[in-house]
Every structure is written in structure tokens, then in C-alpha cells.
């Protein structure tokens, strides 16, 4: 088996996050809620955000759900990286992450932890797994505060 290729994809950080995610649960209060779904495999996440209304900053992000190692590590790392960011900055990070999945960008020094997901770009069929959380985040941020989401966003 080409274990070297696999170690690029399944870096230690990814496997550790999969095993012991640090951001599972629900924020208190829930200022934004969005469910994301990858219909081709059935993976589902539920994302909650706590926002500071005055500064438009994300105070906390949590997730629930089940998925593969890539999806779970991606959402856990994302949750951590978002804390303290403004919603505008978070939307820029969505763009950046998606560009990274195309092999066209990487995160700067202060967000370098997210760069462990870079290996996924070499496995095109798995990009969806890594993108699920970011896709869901985008939908959550674009919702008006206090508006209930119509359903889940699909990652297709």
C-alpha cells in the first residue's frame, strides 16, 4: 500500500482531531445554526455559532455530527480558527480554504494549522469531505440573525 501518499493525506493532526475533536457540542447561546450534508456519503454536521453583536466577531463555534476523518478534522480545525474573527474575515477564510483545495492558496502564519488540510487537494474525490464544514459555515454566516434556516445545505 502506498502509505506515504496516505500519510500526506492523513497527517497526525488530522487523525488526532478525528479521534479527539476539541470543539464538539453546541454554543451557548446559539446565534447561528446550520446543518450541512454530503448526500453522496451521508455525512452530516450541525454547526452552531456564538456571535458578539457589537463587534461582529465570532466568539465560539461548535459542531455535532458524524463523518469521515477528513470531514471531522476539517470542521474541528475550522471551529478553532474562527474564534475571534469577524464574519467578514470568516467569509474570506471560506474563499481561502476553497482555493487551497484547488491547490491555489494557503493560509498565512497565524492560521497555519489549517494548512494540514492541504494534502486533500491531491485526492480530488475527498475535497467535498474537507469542504463540508466551510460550505456549512458560509450558509450559516449568510443567514440573517434570528432567521431559522430553511433546511440543510447540501455539499453537492
Amino acid at each position: 500500500m502506498s502509505l506515504n501518499n496516505l500519510r500526506d493525506l492523513y497527517q497526525q493532526v488530522i487523525l488526532e482531531r478525528y479521534k479527539k475533536p476539541r470543539n464538539r457540542g453546541k454554543t451557548n447561546p446559539v446565534d447561528r445554526y446550520q446543518k450541512g450534508h454530503n448526500p453522496s456519503c451521508g455525512d452530516t454536521i450541525e454547526l452552531t455559532l456564538k456571535l458578539d453583536g457589537d463587534s461582529d466577531r465570532i466568539e465560539d463555534v461548535k459542531f455535532e455530527g458524524e463523518g469521515c476523518a477528513i470531514a471531522m478534522a476539517s470542521v474541528d480545525l475550522m471551529a478553532e480558527a474562527l474564534k475571534g474573527r469577524t464574519t467578514a474575515e470568516a467569509l474570506e477564510m471560506v474563499q481561502k480554504f476553497q482555493a487551497m483545495m484547488r491547490g491555489e492558496a494557503e493560509f498565512p502564519q497565524e492560521l497555519r494549522k489549517l494548512n494540514v488540510m492541504q494534502g486533500v487537494a491531491q485526492f480530488p474525490v475527498r475535497i467535498k469531505c474537507a469542504n463540508l464544514s466551510w460550505h456549512t459555515l458560509k450558509a450559516a454566516l449568510e443567514l440573517q440573525q434570528g432567521v431559522k434556516p430553511a433546511g440543510f445545505v447540501s455539499n453537492e
Binding site: 502506498s2 496516505l6 493525506l9 451521508g42 469521515c68 476523518a69
Partner: peptide, 27 residues
């Protein structure tokens, strides 16, 4: 996870399916 397993097996040339196989209610 089945998706991870499928990727790992693919690296060994082995093609299997991972997911719900179009039977979501059964899963």
C-alpha cells in the same frame, strides 16, 4: 470511516464502494 477506508484501499488498487449505496432509509 468507510470513506477513509475506500481512499486507503484505492491506494492499493482496490475499488470498493463507500457511502449509503442509494439505500439511505435502510442505513
Amino acid at each position: 470511516h468507510p470513506h477513509d477506508l475506500s481512499t486507503i484501499l484505492d491506494q492499493a488498487g482496490i475499488a470498493i464502494r463507500a457511502g449509503h449505496h442509494c439505500t439511505q432509509p435502510l442505513h
